Simulated scan of single mutants.
Amino acid sequence: MPSIVVALVAACAEGELLVLGSRAFSGFGGFLAGSVALATVARATRPVVLVRADETPASERMPGSDGEPSARAPYREVVVGVDTAHMCDDVLAFAFESAVLRSAPLRAVHAWTQSISPGPGAKNTSAQEDAERELTRVLGPWREKYPTVEVHELVANDHAAHLIQGATTEAGLLVVGRRNRPARIGAHTGRVDHAVMHHVRCPVAIIPHE
């Protein structure tokens, strides 16, 4: 493992979070996640926030009345990817706290997939409704804990990375989780984390969780 990765992971463990910047961009305009960033994110025990090189404080806010970036305009929304099949309290806590600090709305995104093509109408509708109910259930306690946060839900039959990428077009921050893997599997980022690290334009917070 490169010494810089060891140093970054050790520093991250001593703090609340680690922020990594990029001096370059991927071909899709997102964060260019090189080997150091990928290795660090995969091993970090605290949240890691990835920030593009041209990001400024005004970038996280809505445009002013003249259409230009403004440090006095409201913050853009926070987007959080939610996997309802696994506990994600750390991810939701980070997302809601971020929304509170910004006085920004929060958009919770959940993707579901159906490998077998459904029959006309009913099955597909039922799967969508089930996914919507499950996301609402997971968010319920957090809405009660953070009553001032305006929460929007987005549920769709889609690949998670694709749905999240589309939802973050105007976002100021994306929050996603990274499951800690057993030692026999090895440290790595999941497919969704890997995709958003490369393709999402806004800052990305990756939160390790069990």
Rank of each mutant, 00 (worst) to 15 (best):
V5R: 03
A7T: 12
E14W: 02
G29I: 07
L32N: 10
L32Q: 12
S35T: 10
L38V: 15
A39F: 01
A39K: 08
A42C: 06
A42S: 13
V49R: 07
V49M: 12
L50K: 02
V51M: 03
E55K: 01
T56N: 01
P57D: 05
A58C: 00
S59K: 06
R61Y: 03
M62P: 01
G64I: 07
S65H: 11
D66Y: 02
S70F: 11
A71K: 07
R72Y: 13
R72G: 00
R72Q: 13
P74L: 06
Y75L: 00
V78F: 01
V80L: 04
T84Y: 06
H86V: 15
C88T: 09
C88E: 12
D89P: 01
D89S: 14
L92C: 10
A93W: 05
S98D: 00
A99D: 02
R107A: 00
V109Q: 09
H110P: 13
H110W: 06
Q114F: 15
I116G: 02
G119F: 11
P120W: 13
G121D: 14
A122K: 12
N124M: 07
S126P: 00
E134R: 15
L135W: 05
K145Q: 13
T148L: 08
N157R: 14
D158Y: 05
A160K: 04
A161T: 05
H162G: 03
I164G: 05
Q165A: 08
G166I: 09
G172W: 02
V176M: 07
A183F: 06
A183G: 05
R184Y: 09
I185Q: 14
I185E: 13
G190M: 07
G190C: 15
H198W: 00
V200C: 14
P203D: 03
P203C: 02
V204G: 04
A205L: 05
I207F: 04
H209R: 15
